[in-house]
């Protein structure tokens, strides 16, 4: 039996790792994006008390390695009496960390936004949340699509760090298969192929948004 045959016989291990990575990625990408958008919304207009704490949080996250945050949640918090599973800690770390990055990307673009459009929406009687959801956010997404896409790929790659805090994702699958059968080369080639595939998928998705934006005259920022 060749090494590849051995791998094929345990394709279910790969598939479950792949599925777990996709689940981690999908769930935390959506939540992190919502969190980032919510932070930018909170930075809108007349909430000066929130500005400083949000700024500190966003900059703080951007100065930390992702793994140290995961360590903090999984290994550190139990000594403060907060205990959670590796999976939960992993998701929360991904959401908080990348939420801050998404917030920074959107905030940077918001700062260059033409005020006139906002005034036009105010003059038409839009409420703050409506205006943010319907006028501001769609444009921020169209303008920052390239940066958002890069961030999504970084998020995908950060899911692999969670193998270190024992989450059973894709890299964990390769690692356990290679130690069971001692065929690391083949196992990791398959897994890297999976990551590549998801990345290419993400790039296509961003291109689609790009076409949507180009039709409306939005340059890629």
């Amino acid at each position: 039996m060749s090494n590849w045959d051995i791998l094929w016989s345990s394709y279910d291990v790969f598939l479950s790792g792949f599925y777990n990575t996709l689940k981690l990625f999908g769930l935390s990408a959506v939540l992190a994006f919502l969190m980032g958008s919510a932070m930018v919304f909170l930075l809108e207009g007349s909430r000066p008390r929130l500005k400083v704490p949000l700024r500190i949080f966003i900059d703080g996250m951007r100065m930390l390695p992702f793994l140290i945050l995961a360590y903090l949640l999984y290994y550190g918090l139990p000594s403060a009496g907060i205990r959670m599973s590796a999976w939960t800690a992993g998701i929360i770390a991904l959401v908080i960390y990348h939420g801050a990055y998404f917030a920074e990307i959107l905030r940077g673009c918001r700062a260059t936004f033409a005020q006139g459009q906002v005034e036009a929406a105010i003059a038409q009687g839009f409420s703050q949340p409506q205006m943010f959801m319907r006028i501001i956010l769609p444009q921020l997404i169209l303008k920052t699509r390239g940066l958002l896409g890069n961030q999504l790929i970084i998020l995908l790659k950060d899911t692999a760090f969670l193998v270190i805090i024992t989450v059973r994702e894709l890299t964990a699958a390769a690692s356990s298969l290679s130690s069971t059968y001692f065929i690391p080369m083949e196992a990791f080639i398959v897994v890297i192929g999976f990551y590549w595939l998801i990345s290419i998928g993400l790039e296509l998705f961003i291109k689609m948004i790009g076409r949507f934006g180009a039709k409306r005259g939005f340059e890629n920022a």
Binding site: A160, F161, S175, S179, P184, F188, I192, Y195, S199, I200
Partner: peptide, 23 residues
């Protein structure tokens, strides 16, 4: 470049460290 940008560092580190002895 495309592969290196898509591969998580953790995965790459493990790949290199575990594969080298087999060669």
């Amino acid at each position: 470049i495309s592969l290196a940008r898509a591969t998580p560092l953790v995965t790459l580190v493990l790949f290199i460290f575990l594969t080298a002895p087999t060669m």
